[in-house]
C-alpha cells in the first residue's frame, strides 16, 4: 500500500529553507551572540535529515550530490589549514586576525579569519552527522 505524504513533503520543502536560513543566521551570529559553527552545522544537518525523512534517499541524493565523508575531510582540513596559514606567516599556530572592511551596500563589516575555522567546523559537523545517520539507515 502506498501512503500519500504530499502534506509532509510540501511542508518539509518549505521549512527546510527556513531552517537553513536560521542555520546561516546562527553561524554568522557566533562571534558576538550565541551561535557558531557547531550549532550552525547541527541545524544544517537537521534540515537535511528532515528532507531525508520526507522523501526517500535516492530522491534527496539526486538533489544534493555530496559525499558526506569527503565533506568531513574538507571541513577538518580547512580548520587545520587556517592554523597552518598563521604558521607560514611566522605567527604561532592558530593565530587569528580580523579586519574592518567597508563593503558597498552592506557598509562596514568585521572580517575575521576565525570564521574560516568555523566554516571548517560546520562542514565537519554536517559531514559527520549525515554520515552517521545515512550509514545507520543504509543497513536496514
Amino acid at each position: 500500500m502506498k501512503t500519500n505524504d504530499v502534506i509532509l513533503q510540501t511542508v518539509a520543502s518549505v521549512s527546510a529553507f527556513i531552517i537553513l536560513t536560521f542555520a546561516a543566521y546562527l553561524f554568522f551570529a557566533g562571534h558576538h551572540e550565541p551561535g557558531g559553527g557547531f550549532i550552525g552545522g547541527i541545524v544544517i544537518a537537521s534540515a537535511l535529515v528532515l528532507l531525508y525523512l520526507a522523501f526517500d534517499m535516492e530522491t534527496v541524493q539526486q538533489g544534493i550530490r555530496v559525499d558526506y565523508k569527503i565533506l568531513t575531510g574538507i571541513g577538518i582540513g580547512l580548520s587545520t589549514i587556517t592554523g597552518v596559514g598563521a604558521m607560514l606567516l611566522g605567527y604561532p599556530f592558530l593565530s587569528h586576525t580580523f579586519e574592518y572592511v567597508t563593503f558597498p551596500f552592506f557598509g562596514e563589516m568585521e572580517l575575521a579569519t576565525s570564521v574560516l575555522f568555523e566554516v571548517g567546523v560546520s562542514l565537519a559537523v554536517v559531514g559527520a552527522t549525515m554520515t552517521i545517520i545515512l550509514s545507520i539507515s543504509e543497513d536496514v
Binding site: 569527503i70 575531510g73 582540513g77 587545520t80 592554523g83 604558521m87 604561532p92 599556530f93
Partner: peptide, 24 residues
C-alpha cells in the same frame, strides 16, 4: 615561541586528513 613544537602532531593530522580522500 617555536612553531616546531606543533609539527609532531600537525604532520600526522594533515596526513590523516589527506588519507580520507584516497580511500580506495
Amino acid at each position: 615561541m617555536n612553531n616546531l613544537v606543533i609539527l609532531p602532531l600537525l604532520i600526522p593530522l594533515l596526513t590523516g586528513i589527506l588519507l580520507i580522500f584516497f580511500r580506495k
